[in-house]
Structure formats: C-alpha cells, structure tokens
C-alpha cells in the first residue's frame, strides 16, 4: 500500500472504552499515523485536540460523561483543520449533518475494515488519493 511518509500524520482517539482505544491506536500506527492523544471525556478530549492539533480525530459518540462525542466533533470541526470521523455503535444518535464530520465508522468494525478506512483517510489528508479512489466499505456504509 503506497502511503505518503513525507510528514507524519497525527491522530487523536476519543473513546471511553480503554481496550477499544488501545486497539484503534495499534491499528492507526500500523497504517502509519502517529497517535497524538487519547481521551474518554468531553473536556479532556477538547483539551487533547486543542493541544495536539491532530490531522484526524476518531470520535465515539458515547463517552464517560454521556453522549458528548457530538460536542467534541463539533469543536474539532469548527476550531481545527482535522478530519473528523465518528466511530459509533449508535448512528441513530447522530445529527443528520454529522456536525460537519467527514463520515462514520460503525461498530462493530473489523480490523481490516478500519485499516482500509484509515488508509483512505490518510490519502485524503495527504491529498494523494486517486480521483476515482473508492471509499472503503466501512466509511461508505456509514455515509448513507
């Protein structure tokens, strides 16, 4: 898989299940991201995003302090240049416009599915995806 390594891309993972966050971190590193931070609560999440200026935010909707992932995503969309992708088992809880997020990876996801999605997102960030690049199933299934 051709990945642009010119500049390490930073990812932040907002997920309240520690093991799932760890799993996602490992997958992200496999794909070539640098993990810049992780948080499971709204305030921590906003703090981490503000501090680390990530290129990509993966955001679960339900965090330790309730369904605050939407607020976190909105903050990242409005205040940073990061791509924001929801990772959630509860798509129904998301607003129609996804508060400006790029897409959704729905739980339960597969390692290979998330890898495909992250590679695609890396391509979007580095602006080196082919014009006709197919959106991976994990992201694509979410977008509809």
């Amino acid at each position: 898989m051709a990945i642009d390594h010119r500049k390490p891309r930073k990812i932040v993972i907002i997920e309240d299940e520690v093991l799932l966050a760890l799993d996602l971190e490992m997958i992200a590193e496999d794909v070539g991201f640098t993990v810049a931070g992780q948080a499971g609560r709204k305030n921590e999440a906003i703090d981490v995003i503000q501090r680390s200026r990530p290129d990509l935010c993966l955001v679960d909707v339900h965090l330790l302090d309730g369904p605050t992932g939407v607020d976190v995503a909105r903050f990242a969309v409005e205040n940073t240049n990061a791509l924001v992708v929801f990772v959630t088992a509860n798509r129904a809880a998301l607003p129609e416009d996804l508060v400006g997020a790029y897409g959704i990876i729905s739980k339960p996801y597969t390692v290979s599915g998330v890898k495909d999605a992250l590679r695609h997102l890396l391509g979007v960030i580095n602006d080196n995806n082919d014009a006709d690049a197919v959106t991976p199933a994990e992201l694509r299934a979410a977008a509809r």
């Binding site: 760890l22 799993d23 088992a89 739980k107 339960p108 390692v111």
Partner: peptide, 18 residues
Amino acid sequence: LDHRVKNNLQLINSLLGF
C-alpha cells in the same frame, strides 16, 4: 441494548486482535 451488544462484540474482537 443494541449499543451495548455492539460495544461488547467490538471488545471481544479487540481482545482477539491483541
């Protein structure tokens, strides 16, 4: 419930992933 079932399935899969 749906949410929890999905989360737990995800956890099981993460454990196998480890």
